[in-house]
């Protein structure tokens, strides 16, 4: 089924144009890189705050409010630029297990971001009340950073996994 979808996408005029106009893919990839740079730096600052490495002296909720919108505005941009790359080279992306892993990791990363951010809206000190909550925030932060790094790595490895 996926194979059929790949064939159908690849046969469209849009897909053909993205593939054959030589500057489109590097240009879209450049925008994609700029977009995830903003997202990666934002999540890094928010989560390193949990370890006392960044934005010390500013409350956790304030840091989240300052930088997490970058994630929620940035990810749609990344989905659009990513979609253009998928339409251009559907076989390279959709059939690649690394690409599939990357998408799964993205869902996990966004779920963790929401899990971290939501309680702060109702209670800015939610992650600070008890030792267990503080430990929870530290764990969530460490896992989140690892997942975002894995997403960046997976993105680059798509280029190497099944070079057809």
């Amino acid at each position: 089924m996926l194979q059929e979808l790949v064939r159908e996408i690849a046969a469209t005029a849009v897909s053909n144009a993205i593939r054959t106009v030589s500057w489109i893919i590097p240009a879209v990839q450049t925008i994609h890189i700029l977009g995830f740079s903003a997202v990666v730096a934002a999540v890094m600052l928010v989560y390193l705050r949990s370890f006392g490495f960044a934005m010390r002296g500013e409350p956790r909720a304030a840091v989240a409010e300052r930088f997490l919108p970058v994630v929620w505005y940035g990810v749609p941009l990344l989905l659009i630029t990513g979609l253009i790359l998928v339409v251009g080279e559907p076989d390279r992306e959709l059939l690649d297990p690394i690409f599939q892993l990357k998408m799964a990791l993205l869902v996990v990363a966004l779920a963790l971001t929401a899990l971290f951010q939501r309680p702060l809206r109702a209670d800015p000190l939610y992650w600070d009340h008890t030792l267990a909550r503080r430990a929870g925030a530290v764990t969530l932060s460490a896992v989140s950073i690892a997942v975002w790094i894995a997403i960046v790595f997976a993105g680059r490895w798509i280029a190497y996994w099944n070079v057809s």
């Binding site: 890189i33 700029l34 995830f36 740079s37 903003a38 997202v39 990666v40 730096a41 934002a42 890094m44 790094i149 960046v152 790595f153 993105g155 680059r156």
Partner: peptide, 11 residues
């Protein structure tokens, strides 16, 4: 390299 660039470019 890409990861380092992301942190650098973002900040």
């Amino acid at each position: 390299h890409v990861l380092a660039i992301a942190v650098m470019m973002g900040t």
